[in-house]
Amino acid sequence: MLAYVIRRLLLLIPMAVGMIVVTFGLLLLVPGDPAAVLLGPEASPEMIANLRRTLGLDDPWYVRLGAYFWQLLHGDLGRSIFQSAPVSEIIGGRIGATIELAVVALLLATLIGVTLGVLAAVRQGSLIDTVTMLLAQLGVSMPVYWLGLLLMLGFAVQLNWLPAIGRGAPMLDAIVAALSGRPQVLWDSILHILLPALALAANSAAIISRLVRTSMLEVLREDFVRTAYAKGLRRPRVVVRHALRNALLPVLSVIGLRFGALLGGAVLVEMIFAWPGLGQLTFSAVSQRDLPLIQGIVLTFALIFALVNLVVDLLYALVDPRVRLG
């Protein structure tokens, strides 16, 4: 088990190297000059050339790539060209908000997706089933930004129930505050995260609900479900303890993969709801061609994604006794 975890962690290194090289190559191909962006439209060609030299942008690509790896080896992600602060610091200030948003969205998606999927399967062919699958169809085909704007218009602008933009106190701080007698702080954080998380979760919830339904329908026909009934167990217990537990196994790895999709979707959602996370940062870094920052963000996303998948695989081995890690 430990050996397996270590092996998986070591595998992250070649993956990270690959990601860096690919991002680097892509940015070489995309037109745009950070020096020009930095100095603005008034700058003379000499000024731009000067700045490019100071920033090391004129060095051949292999020198720049080599220098970047050399930095990384020393645990240094470099400095942002535009914000004149270390990349690690900038990312560190933002990452919490994005992870919080993605985790809450994943929880929402799982909760909604599993509940609807189970209901649809247990009541196959009923109104609940039809409505759920229609909702799922909608959820799968609706673009994130569109749903985000719709939710904002409806719940924030029209009904004025929820704040349209921004973030409350970080969720963990808010929970601590609530525990020390200030529940309104937590309430405020929840109200803020509800719309962006829902917009982000919809797509995944739809995918999960379809998957859970299919998987449940299959498992409910299995012999061991009949055995559970033969023991005299009541239906809810059979459905949850015997059927759902087995039906969730194939869903689990998909839930893990959805986390990657959620990080991607976060970029759009954060723009719409002014959520101060990595998504917003990505947008500005790309439009400014802030190379070190982009590299840092890509690396961070890749790392989160890989770690989440490792956790999912470990969970899988935990819930399915037939799976051997190795």
Partner: peptide, 18 residues
């Protein structure tokens, strides 16, 4: 299960794998 119980034909598929 208590008044009337059944032994099923296929023990591999009739037992819950998890």
């Amino acid at each position: 299960g208590v008044e009337i119980a059944m032994i099923f034909q296929e023990p591999l598929t009739a037992l819950n794998p998890v």
